[in-house]
Amino acid sequence: MDIPTPLGTRTFASVRGAWIAPVLALTLSACALQKPANVSNEAQLTPPTPSATALLQLPPPQKKIVAAVYGFRDETGQYKPSPSSAFSTAVTQGAASMLMKALKDSGWYIPVEREGLQSLLTERRVLRALAEGSQNGNNGVPNLLPASIILEGGVIAYDTNTRTGGLGAKFLGIGLSTQYSVDQVTVNLRAVDVTTGEVLDSVSTTKTIFSHEIHPSYFRFVNYYDLLEIEGGYTHNEPAQLAVKEAIDAAVMHLTINGIKNNLWRLRNPADWDSPLIQRYLAAEKNEVVTVTPRQAVDMDTEATLTQTQ
């Protein structure tokens, strides 16, 4: 025997089903039509990294250093993981341009063009040809500025998923989960004396690349037969090129301060050595020094015994 449903119950269920469907469709359409952020905005300058800001605050040198950069290559051999293209590299191939800008921003170096040297020499030949064809016959093309040091190095490591993790919870159909992953890029920079070929100093800097995802969800039966399920998501990936730029800026900063400490180049005002900026980087360098602990006496005795036996 069929049990009749009360009129109020049927009315409430039909009304609830009538407003849930339009609201859900309107919500999904609004999400689909939402424009990505910062797409229609005007192009702007690349934001400075913390190390780039520190470079701009360096005390002035006694004499600027003429530095040449022939290349700052990607030595990792890493490619982006699937489903990206197999020919797409994991890190930027324009690290040399980032290094040149860091040298210029520091105020300590006079970077000279060497990566595009062939194009520069071609234009200089054009200038000489034009000058020789003039009436006065004076070529007027000065000599190229010679460099005192060459800056070598490159991106030497790119490690993916050095740390991963996540957390999630659900209660009465309402849930929230989050996941994160950490990549790591390492840069090496060394200064080479042009006259002797001696490596004056070499530094390596590491920068982490942080990515995280937030995933909320809602799961509820609106009546005996209809299921309402709503999901969303937000993902933020730190740009890899900004991480490479930060590592390069930090390498230039440490290389400059190490050169001051080792009397390779000097400050215009020696009292600037005690500035908070320089002392902060010196303290960071001391904290990264690896302390080698002595071996246990038992291990040393064992090694001595084995040596005598041999």
Rank of each mutant, 00 (worst) to 15 (best):
G166A: 12
P83C: 08
T164K: 09
T196G: 11
S177K: 12
Y224I: 07
V185G: 00
L7A: 15
P270T: 01
T235S: 15
W265A: 01
T235Q: 15
V194E: 10
A13M: 02
G259Q: 01
I156V: 15
G116M: 05
G154F: 02
D299R: 10
T5G: 04
I174P: 00
L167V: 11
D249R: 01
Q184P: 04
M1Q: 14
L130V: 11
L144V: 08
P50Q: 09
V199H: 05
N262D: 08
A284L: 14
E113S: 06
I209Q: 03
S148M: 09
D299Q: 07
G154L: 02
T27G: 14
Y234H: 13
G166P: 07
T206S: 13
A271E: 11
Q62V: 05
T162D: 14
G137Y: 05
W265G: 00
P4R: 09
D226H: 15
N138P: 02
T46A: 14
N263Q: 14
N136Y: 05
D201S: 05
W108Q: 02
S106Y: 03
V69S: 03
A13W: 05
V126M: 11
L144P: 03
E288P: 00
V203Q: 01
A271R: 07
R268A: 15
G133C: 03
L103I: 08
S88N: 13
T186C: 04
L130H: 06
R125N: 11
P60A: 15
S88A: 12
H215D: 13
N269H: 12
S204Q: 09
G197V: 05
V39G: 05
P239N: 10
Y225I: 13
T76C: 04
L151P: 01
R125H: 09
A243Y: 00
T205Y: 00
L26G: 12
K286C: 00
G17F: 03
R128C: 09
S51Q: 06
R190P: 01
E132L: 14
M100E: 13
D159Q: 04
R16I: 08
L58Y: 09
I150D: 10
E123V: 02
R268T: 07
T302K: 10
A247S: 05
P50S: 07
K35I: 07
G71D: 04
N139E: 14
A243C: 11
F12I: 07
